[in-house]
Amino acid sequence: MSDNAEFSPRIAAFLCNWCSYGAADLAGVSRLQYPPNIQVIRIPCTGRMSPKFILAAFRKGVDGVWVSG
Protein backbone atom coordinates (compact mmCIF):
# COMPACT_ATOMS: atom_id res chain seq x y z
CA MET A 1 0.00 0.00 0.00
CA SER A 2 2.58 2.55 -1.07
CA ASP A 3 0.32 4.98 -2.84
CA ASN A 4 -2.24 6.78 -0.73
CA ALA A 5 -4.60 7.17 -3.67
CA GLU A 6 -4.98 3.39 -3.92
CA PHE A 7 -5.29 2.93 -0.20
CA SER A 8 -8.62 1.44 0.71
CA PRO A 9 -9.13 1.66 4.46
CA ARG A 10 -10.93 -0.86 6.62
CA ILE A 11 -13.36 0.80 8.98
CA ALA A 12 -15.21 -0.94 11.77
CA ALA A 13 -18.70 0.59 12.01
CA PHE A 14 -20.55 -0.03 15.24
CA LEU A 15 -24.17 0.74 14.44
CA CYS A 16 -27.06 0.91 16.86
CA ASN A 17 -29.77 -1.56 15.99
CA TRP A 18 -32.52 1.02 16.22
CA CYS A 19 -30.91 4.04 14.65
CA SER A 20 -28.00 3.80 12.27
CA TYR A 21 -28.52 0.15 11.45
CA GLY A 22 -31.99 1.08 10.31
CA ALA A 23 -30.53 3.97 8.36
CA ALA A 24 -28.07 1.60 6.68
CA ASP A 25 -30.96 -0.67 5.80
CA LEU A 26 -32.95 2.23 4.42
CA ALA A 27 -29.93 3.41 2.43
CA GLY A 28 -29.71 -0.04 0.90
CA VAL A 29 -33.42 -0.19 0.09
CA SER A 30 -33.25 3.31 -1.39
CA ARG A 31 -30.29 2.27 -3.60
CA LEU A 32 -28.04 4.97 -2.17
CA GLN A 33 -24.40 4.38 -3.02
CA TYR A 34 -21.77 4.60 -0.33
CA PRO A 35 -18.11 3.50 -0.04
CA PRO A 36 -17.61 -0.22 0.58
CA ASN A 37 -14.93 0.29 3.25
CA ILE A 38 -17.10 -0.02 6.30
CA GLN A 39 -17.65 -3.33 8.02
CA VAL A 40 -20.86 -3.11 9.97
CA ILE A 41 -21.14 -4.53 13.46
CA ARG A 42 -24.62 -4.35 14.88
CA ILE A 43 -24.95 -3.48 18.57
CA PRO A 44 -28.23 -3.47 20.50
CA CYS A 45 -27.82 0.17 21.49
CA THR A 46 -25.00 2.71 21.57
CA GLY A 47 -25.05 2.17 25.32
CA ARG A 48 -23.69 -1.33 24.64
CA MET A 49 -20.52 0.25 23.26
CA SER A 50 -17.48 -0.38 25.37
CA PRO A 51 -14.01 1.07 24.97
CA LYS A 52 -12.84 -2.54 24.79
CA PHE A 53 -14.54 -2.89 21.41
CA ILE A 54 -12.79 0.13 19.97
CA LEU A 55 -9.37 -0.90 21.23
CA ALA A 56 -9.92 -4.51 20.14
CA ALA A 57 -10.85 -3.27 16.66
CA PHE A 58 -7.66 -1.20 16.42
CA ARG A 59 -5.63 -4.10 17.74
CA LYS A 60 -7.00 -6.38 15.03
CA GLY A 61 -5.81 -3.87 12.45
CA VAL A 62 -8.64 -1.65 11.33
CA ASP A 63 -7.73 1.81 10.08
CA GLY A 64 -10.66 3.60 11.60
CA VAL A 65 -13.58 3.12 13.95
CA TRP A 66 -16.97 4.68 13.57
CA VAL A 67 -19.59 4.51 16.27
CA SER A 68 -23.05 5.65 15.37
CA GLY A 69 -26.22 5.81 17.39
Binding site: P51, K52, L55, A56, F58, R59
Partner: peptide, 25 residues
Protein backbone atom coordinates in the same frame (compact mmCIF):
# COMPACT_ATOMS: atom_id res chain seq x y z
CA UNK B 1 -11.15 -7.16 32.07
CA UNK B 2 -7.54 -8.35 31.86
CA UNK B 3 -8.52 -11.69 33.37
CA UNK B 4 -11.43 -12.23 31.02
CA UNK B 5 -10.61 -15.07 28.66
CA UNK B 6 -13.73 -15.46 26.55
CA UNK B 7 -13.77 -13.10 24.81
CA UNK B 8 -10.29 -11.90 25.56
CA UNK B 9 -10.35 -8.15 25.16
CA UNK B 10 -6.86 -7.51 26.36
CA UNK B 11 -4.02 -9.73 25.21
CA UNK B 12 -1.61 -11.05 27.79
CA UNK B 13 1.66 -10.33 26.01
CA UNK B 14 4.05 -7.43 26.39
CA UNK B 15 3.34 -6.28 22.88
CA UNK B 16 2.95 -2.51 22.73
CA UNK B 17 -0.68 -2.81 21.66
CA UNK B 18 -1.55 -5.07 24.58
CA UNK B 19 0.28 -2.96 27.14
CA UNK B 20 -1.32 0.20 25.76
CA UNK B 21 -4.75 -1.44 25.78
CA UNK B 22 -4.33 -2.39 29.42
CA UNK B 23 -3.24 1.05 30.52
CA UNK B 24 -5.83 2.92 28.46
CA UNK B 25 -8.68 0.76 29.72
Amino acid sequence: FVDEAQPQWCGKTQDEADVATFHIL
